[in-house]
């Protein structure tokens, strides 16, 4: 093998390796399987490739969780259509026992969440604490089966690295967070 051919092979390997390896600071390093509202099972890491807003909720929540969903919508509305189309949203259930695909589909329909952008998914019960820890979400199961949890929107870049997060929810988008979303979309 000539040095040139060797170098070419080496460069190809690097490119292939770069495309394969998930960065060490990516939350997609976690070996987590999710099931979405359409009953499709997939590895969390398959969401790699597109920047995403990620958070956790449970569908039987009546107060803050709707606010959480609406707050994501407010962020989406602050974007231009050509930006919006390149951003994904993933809402992961804290309550996989009760949040069946049917329950997730119901929420998806009720809130008008386009499945092309919105992924509502439940993890395996044992992975809930891992996902929450990766996203920096704190939660506790209450004695009546409800959940107490921090409501935070986390922005992941296409590689699954946490770029920004916000706890400012409600009718007005957090300008810093929207700016971070724009910047992440531009960087691609």
């Amino acid at each position: 093998m000539t040095i040139r051919r060797w170098l070419t092979a080496w460069a190809l390997m690097l490119v292939a390796g770069g495309a394969m390896a998930i960065p060490t600071d990516s939350i997609y390093r976690a070996d987590v399987v999710l099931t979405d509202a359409q009953s499709h099972r997939f590895r969390w890491a398959e969401q790699r490739g597109q920047p995403r807003i990620v958070s956790m909720l449970y569908t039987s929540c009546t107060f803050t969780c709707p606010t959480l969903v609406e707050s994501v919508k407010v962020v989406l509305l602050a974007l231009r259509p050509d930006e919006r189309i390149r951003l994904g949203v993933t809402m992961i259930s804290l309550d996989p026992k009760r949040d069946t695909p049917e329950a997730l589909a119901k929420l998806q329909k009720e809130r008008g969440l386009d499945p092309a952008h919105w992924t509502l998914a439940r993890p395996q019960p044992r992975d809930v604490s891992t996902i929450a820890a990766l996203l920096g979400i704190r939660y506790r199961v209450l004695s009546d089966g409800d959940f107490n949890h921090t409501t935070v929107l986390v922005l992941l870049d296409g590689e699954g690295r946490i770029v920004a997060s916000t706890e400012k929810l409600g009718g007005v988008a957090d300008a810093m967070f929207v700016a971070a979303v724009r910047k992440t979309l531009e960087a691609r």
Binding site: L57, C61, F63, T64, C65, T67, L68, R140, L142, D146, F147, N148, H149, T150, T151, E167, L169, G170
Partner: peptide, 9 residues
């Protein structure tokens, strides 16, 4: 007040 969903502080 929006930080937590639900009771149980």
């Amino acid at each position: 007040r929006n930080r937590f969903c639900g009771a149980g502080a």
